[in-house]
Computed example of a mutant assay.
Amino acid sequence: MLHIRASMKFTREPVKRTPVTLYLDTDPDNPIRGATDRGGVASFDIPPASGKIVINGSTRYHGRLEGEIEIQLWSPTDSDSVAEQGMPGGDEGGSVAYPGMQVHGLRVGGREIETDSEGYLVNLGDWSEAFVRAQAEREGLKLTDETWEVIRYLRDYYERRRVQANVREIIKHFRAVWGPERGSNRHLHAIFPRGGPQKQGNRLAGLLRTKGEH
């Protein structure tokens, strides 16, 4: 069961009778719709999943959908939303091309974007959810709730700290969330078979290669 509690940022007053929509990462074309009640809570009877929460037309959260999630708004008509493309945190990104780099084209959302020979974005601002799906298909990776959750964690970690998560931090986080077996290094490499979350995960998250991968 998922409970979304929406309130005003400063007054803590509940955001009442407001549309709330869930977009599951594994089924984005079939949104789940609801609304907050008089207490500002919208409840959805779904198993744990990875996805986005849209309130009144704006994306307010993306990541693990489970338990109770609190979302605070500046105003009832607040239009600020969580970034769904580009670099985390609104960074402009920019080209990371270097002399002699082998560049490949990837068709994403009706336009051609560039990656290096391994699939890392040449222009970090080109990241989008559509890129994740296109690059995963090119790599033969099936996207699941687990893979999406790791990708969103990696982007959120960078957005909050301006550094990329290392392997130890990734394992620590997912052991706490998923338990010791599913959060183990072995399982994380099983769901990201081409280099684990620090390599394949970062690549799909639109982040840079980490030290030692060049």
Rank of each mutant, 00 (worst) to 15 (best):
H3I: 01
S7A: 12
T11G: 08
V15E: 03
K16S: 08
R17S: 09
P19S: 08
T21L: 13
L22A: 06
D27N: 14
D29W: 03
R33N: 08
G39I: 13
A42P: 11
A42V: 10
S43C: 09
I46C: 08
P47S: 08
P47M: 07
A49E: 08
S50C: 12
G51R: 00
K52I: 10
K52N: 07
I55R: 00
T59Q: 10
Y61V: 04
L65G: 01
I69P: 04
I71F: 03
L73T: 05
T77F: 06
M87L: 08
P88F: 14
G90Y: 14
G94A: 00
G100N: 00
M101L: 03
V108A: 04
R111M: 01
L121S: 02
L121D: 00
V122Q: 04
L124P: 01
E129F: 12
R133V: 15
A134V: 00
Q135E: 14
R138L: 06
E139N: 10
T144Q: 07
D145Q: 03
D145V: 08
E146H: 04
T147A: 02
E149Y: 02
V150R: 02
I151V: 11
L154F: 14
D156C: 01
Y157W: 15
Q164I: 10
N166C: 13
V167S: 13
V167K: 06
I170Q: 06
R175A: 11
R175K: 14
A176T: 15
W178Y: 14
P180R: 11
E181S: 13
G183L: 13
N185H: 09
R186A: 13
L188K: 07
A190L: 15
P193G: 09
G195Y: 10
P197N: 10
Q198N: 13
K199M: 15
Q200G: 12
R203K: 15
L204V: 09
L208V: 13
K211D: 12
